[in-house]
Design a protein around this nucleic acid. Sequence first.
DNA 1: GATCAGGTTTGCA
DNA 2: TGCAAACCTGAT
Length: 267
Amino acid sequence: MLVTNNNLDFFLIARSGQCFRMHAEGDTVFLRTGSRFLTIHDLGQGVLDLSCTEEEFPFWSHYLDLHGPYARAIRAIPPEDTYLLSCVSACRGLHLLRQDPFETLISFILSQRKSIPAIEQCVEKLCMLCGEADDSGYAFPTPQALAACTEKELRGCALGYRAPYVLETARLVCTSPLPPPNTRLSDEKLLSRLLAFPGVGIKVASCVLLFAYHRLGSAPVDVWIQRVIDRHYGGVNPFPALGPYAGLYQQYMFCHARLFEHPEGSG
DNA sequence: GATCAGGTTTGCA
DNA sequence: TGCAAACCTGAT
């Protein structure tokens, strides 16, 4: 179905590092989450052709956060933060997806010390190992399917030392399901709940808070953001002072750093 | 072949 | 509380 939206850049989102099953090819974006699959064809002039029915559209509208408070968040940026403003103007059209908590948790556990292409390969292998197959490809594994795997099978997906983390986390989720995306738990409670899983530290837990629970104040600090902090904020983390949209601002900076800045000494 | 990539855990001061 | 070192694997 056709959707008009001038303020959404799927090609940017696909490269934003918040999800690992979204790929751009030419003017088309392919997106997979859980057992769902969507293609987005950019017809130009802000018109997008989504490969979903009207019945499915509410799911995708919510997932893509089509009605998020982006304009308001941008207006709330302190005018003296010129670096952040320049990131926003270079990365307009970025949205924060509302991803599935389990899929996000597992994806970010296995992301540690891996490059984005390596993460995408790992996730795909995991889906092929124990995700349900249909004619469009493989679904993300359920907690039960993942928990039924052996550590050896997971290592076969190039998970390395993260294999037992993923396995144990899947088993724990089977026993005690993750809070739903609309949980009323406070950020702090949710964070400590996530930190209890093996292989989950502050960075991964913050990512799950931001990307699955849409807690826009959660600003994960990874090596890219640490470089931003060192270069542009004199080594002082600016996010605690940036209020309820700090995590969204972090994403603008992250995209800007990855797509437009160069890491130290990499040419 | 050494180093590093969107980190976490463990051990030791 | 803070800092290294170790950990799998693929890419450069």
